[in-house]
C-alpha cells in the first residue's frame, strides 16, 4: 500500500519548520549560506539539505511557497538506473536510499527529472530525502509532516489523500482560485508527494511533464549485467573510478550553490 505526503500549498505559510525538522531528525549539518535576495536558502537541495522551502515572487506580485524534496516517484528513474541497487522502492512507496551501497556514481543525479539527488563530494555518497522510512515503517509520520504547524502537510494512504486533494482543489476553485490544480497524481507513474497548487505548476518551478533523461533506457537495459560486474571485486575497482569520474563531471556541470 503506497503512502504519500499531500502538500497543500494554500495552507503553507513558509515557516520552514519542515526544513529544520528534516535536519534535526536526520542529523544533517548546516551549511554556511549567504543571503541572495530571496528567502529561499539554500537555493537548491544539497547533499545535507534534503528538503527546502522555495519562495517564488511572481510578476503579479504573489508570493508562492512550496516545500521541495524527493518526490518518491512510482516509476522512479533513480531506482531504474542505480547499478548497485542502492536506491529502491519500499512497499509503502518510499524511495529509499542505502548509503552503504552507494558509490556516489551520480547516475541518479543525471536521470532525476526533479534535480533531487546530490553527491557529497567528501563522502562520495548520494544524499536525498529518505521519506523518513525508519519512522514511517514504525507508525510515525515523516519528521516534516509531524512538525508542520498549519496542517499543510499530511501523510497517508495514496487513494484516500488523492480523493481529499481533489475535493480540496474543487473547493479552492469555488473560492476563486480558478487555476487551482493537483500536481503529482500521474507524473512519473504517480508521485509520492502530491501538491495542491493555486497557480499553474510552472509558477512554482515544477516541471510541466517530468521525464527521466533520454539515456535512461540504456541504463535500464545495462543494469542487470552491470550489477553482476560490480559484484566482482576486481572489476568493481575500475567501475568505481569510472563512476566517480562521472560524478565529478556532473558536479561541475550543475554549478549548484556551494555549501560546506
Amino acid at each position: 500500500m503506497a503512502n504519500i505526503v499531500l502538500i497543500d500549498t494554500r495552507k503553507c505559510m513558509a515557516c520552514r519548520g519542515c526544513q529544520v525538522a528534516c535536519k534535526d531528525w536526520n542529523q544533517l549539518p548546516a551549511g554556511v549560506t549567504k543571503f541572495r535576495g530571496t528567502y529561499t536558502n539554500p537555493l537548491t537541495l544539497q547533499p545535507h539539505t534534503w528538503t527546502h522551502l522555495v519562495f517564488t515572487e511572481t510578476d503579479q506580485g504573489r508570493w508562492l511557497f512550496a516545500k521541495y524534496a524527493c518526490m518518491h516517484c512510482t516509476d522512479a528513474a533513480c531506482v531504474e538506473v542505480c547499478p548497485l541497487g542502492a536506491v529502491r522502492r519500499l512497499k509503502n512507496g518510499t524511495v529509499w536510499h542505502d548509503a552503504d551501497k552507494c558509490a556516489g556514481c551520480g547516475l541518479c543525479v543525471e536521470q532525476c527529472p526533479f534535480n533531487v539527488p546530490r553527491i557529497n563530494k567528501f563522502t562520495r555518497v548520494m544524499g536525498k530525502c529518505t521519506g523518513c522510512a525508519e519512522r514511517t515503517m514504525n507508525g510515525l509520520q515523516p519528521a516534516c509532516v509531524a512538525t508542520c504547524p498549519s496542517g499543510a502537510l499530511e501523510y497517508g494512504e495514496r487513494k484516500e489523500l488523492l480523493a481529499k486533494a481533489r475535493a480540496r482543489v474543487e473547493e479552492l476553485q469555488e473560492q476563486g482560485f480558478d487555476q487551482a490544480c493537483l500536481y503529482g497524481e500521474t507524473e512519473m507513474g504517480g508521485l509520492g508527494r502530491v501538491y495542491i497548487l493555486t497557480r499553474p505548476p510552472a509558477e512554482y518551478g515544477l516541471p510541466e511533464n517530468p521525464q527521466p533523461a533520454a539515456s535512461a533506457w540504456f541504463w535500464r537495459a545495462a543494469k542487470g549485467p552491470l550489477r553482476k560486474l560490480a559484484s566482482l571485486t576486481l572489476v568493481s575497482g575500475a567501475m568505481f573510478s569510472l563512476l566517480r569520474w562521472r560524478a565529478e563531471r556532473i558536479q561541475g556541470k550543475r554549478g549548484d550553490q556551494k555549501a560546506v
Partner: peptide
C-alpha cells in the same frame, strides 16, 4: 543555531 542561521544568514 546553525540550522536556523543557514536559513537567514545575513542582515538584509
Amino acid at each position: 543555531s546553525p540550522w536556523l542561521a543557514e536559513l537567514a544568514p545575513e542582515m538584509f
